[in-house]
Design a protein around this nucleic acid. Structure first.
Length: 476
RNA sequence: GGGCCCUUCGUCUAUCGGUUAGGACGCCUGGUUUUCAACCAGGAAAGAGGGGUUCGACUCCCCUAGGGCCUGCCA
């Protein structure tokens, strides 16, 4: 194999780049599809070109409107806006038929009258002989009857090589004779995927096809079809697939595969983008990039060839990074929705305010939205608090008396902010002749019942004077 | 069966023939300490195996092993 091809940006007029994402609407937006879309989007933006969206719905039996909606929603959530109108492939079937006719006219395709049984027999035979499928009708054999049903097949070449100078995988060369006499038009006259992609990519002016590695061998087939049509093929870039944490192909066993599931688990779209783009792509040194940063640094030549695995721990830390950066109001909304859905209840006005106040501080400590909700739980619990065992064990009589003294002191505290409160706590410990260690855990227990909470001064501030004092009083 | 692709710490990756093979996440240890987290300091951790080519190979070539994709009138 030759050294991997490096893409020379300067060789291309920037405006000429057209990429596309072409999902088939038979399910939700898969995680791998999301990354593919992201790469296409990034490259088009980088080159000042266009990123198009095409729905490959030529399989009428399996395509559903729900799936189309799910995919568009997913892309929308990730902020991968496409240029122009969405192309629905099935609507273009007449154009695909036209192309097939043109191929027949050129002698690069033909009508094939094989029955399902004959077809099966040829498949078995070719498999056994280790060669590609060939139709007996490829050289103009007469139809069995004038009105016999037929498919249109590619007349695959028998000589020569097909070379795909893949932008990621390098030169991939196969022998033309290893390509089947592919079905281009089904017996019902509808095009197959193999024909549709070629015609649509050509008509849409696609210059760079960035897609999953599962299409690598299809590239050779498609190049042959381009030639059969006397068209110039686009440049291909095949990205390796994403595997589960165990290295196996992603499946239901691995849990979430769809982007909406990640959304529901409390990940932020910017985190998903940042995480996904680094699966297979590395700009060199930056580990976490925004989409904007990625646009300026993106380069197809920097995409690796090896498949990568999902790592939830890494995703968590990337998400934590973006949580800390996220807008407070946005997070408050997300957390509120999460809590209400989780508990099946609506939060009151005071609770919403308490929650909103806690976000700016707590967001730095949370990995995901549910995690943030857990971090904020202590401001939402209702008095009297139910103490967990550890907290309960701290409430001895002599400590209660100390709590009483602390409460008296805090009551007189003029400013209820964490700086003053923290100082007050230290001063109190000094007066009591003990370290903070003799006071902190118990106070914390009284304030939170054992739930996680930030620094005590901060916790007191977030709770507010009345609520904090009341929680302390409850334990005396 | 046939064709094709892949292989650096546990994971994501840097390295484009000469590095003590670097970083990030995770992990371990220590520090801070009022829970959890965060934070700070330190640490363990990698070129699948075997042949070549070369003064020199993670980097180039071949073989083996392992993984993957395609081989549909699915996409």
């Amino acid at each position: 194999m030759l050294p991997r091809a490096r893409f020379d940006h300067s060789a291309f007029s920037p405006m000429s780049v057209v990429t596309r994402f072409a999902p088939s609407p038979t399910g939700y937006l898969h995680i791998g599809g999301a990354r593919t879309a992201l790469f296409n989007w990034l490259y088009a933006r980088k080159m000042g070109g266009k990123y198009l969206l095409r729905i490959e719905d030529t399989d009428r039996a399996r395509s559903t409107p729900e799936a189309i909606e799910a995919i568009i929603d997913g892309l929308d959530w990730l902020g991968l806006q496409h240029d122009g109108e969405i192309t629905y492939q099935f609507e273009r079937a007449p154009r695909h038929r036209e192309a097939a006719e043109a191929m027949i006219a050129r002698g690069t395709a033909f009508r094939c009258y094989m029955t399902a049984e004959e077809q099966e027999a040829e498949r078995a035979k070719s498999h056994e002989e280790g060669r590609a499928i060939r139709s007996p009708y490829r050289d103009g054999k007469a139809p069995p009857s004038p009105d016999a049903p037929f498919t249109v097949r590619l007349r695959a070449p028998d000589e020569g090589d097909v070379l795909n100078v893949d932008l990621i995988q390098g030169d991939v060369r196969i022998k033309a004779r290893d390509i089947d006499d592919l079905v281009l038009l089904r017996a019902d006259g509808n095009p197959t995927y193999m024909l549709s992609v070629v015609v649509d990519d050509h008509d849409m002016g696609v210059t760079h096809v960035i897609r999953g590695d599962d299409h690598l061998t299809n590239a050779a087939r498609q190049i042959v079809i381009y030639r059969a049509l006397d068209w110039t093929p686009p440049l291909f870039a095949h990205v390796s697939l994403i595997h589960g944490e165990d290295g196996k192909k992603l499946s239901k066993r691995h849990g979430a595969q769809a982007v909406h599931e990640w959304r529901d688990m409390g990940y932020l779209p910017e985190a998903m983008n940042a995480y996904l783009m680094r699966l297979g792509w590395s700009p060199g040194h930056d580990d976490i990039l925004s989409k904007e940063e990625a646009i300026s640094q993106f380069d197809i030549a920097q995409i690796g060839k090896a498949p990568s695995r999902l790592d939830f721990k890494k995703l968590d830390s990337v998400n934590a990074h973006f949580m800390a950066l996220a807008d407070d109001e946005r997070l408050a909304k997300l957390v509120l929705t999460h809590i209400e859905q989780r508990d099946g209840a609506t939060l009151g006005g005071a609770e919403r305010v308490a929650l909103a106040n806690a976000i700016p501080l707590l967001k730095k400590r949370a990995k995901t939205i549910p995690d943030l909700a857990d971090q904020a739980a202590f401001v939402l619990v209702k008095r009297p608090l139910v103490l967990d065992d550890k907290a309960k064990s701290l409430m001895k009589d002599d400590f209660r008396q100390r709590l009483q003294r602390l409460r008296d002191r805090l009551t007189k505290e003029p400013a209820w902010d964490h700086v003053s409160l923290g100082a007050a706590l230290k001063a109190f410990a000094t007066d009591e002749g003990v370290g903070l260690g003799q006071i902190g855990p118990g106070l914390r227990a009284a304030l939170t019942g054992g739930l996680p909470a930030p620094d005590l001064g901060q916790a007191l501030e977030l709770l507010g004077r009345d609520e904090a004092l009341a929680r302390i009083a409850d334990q005396i």
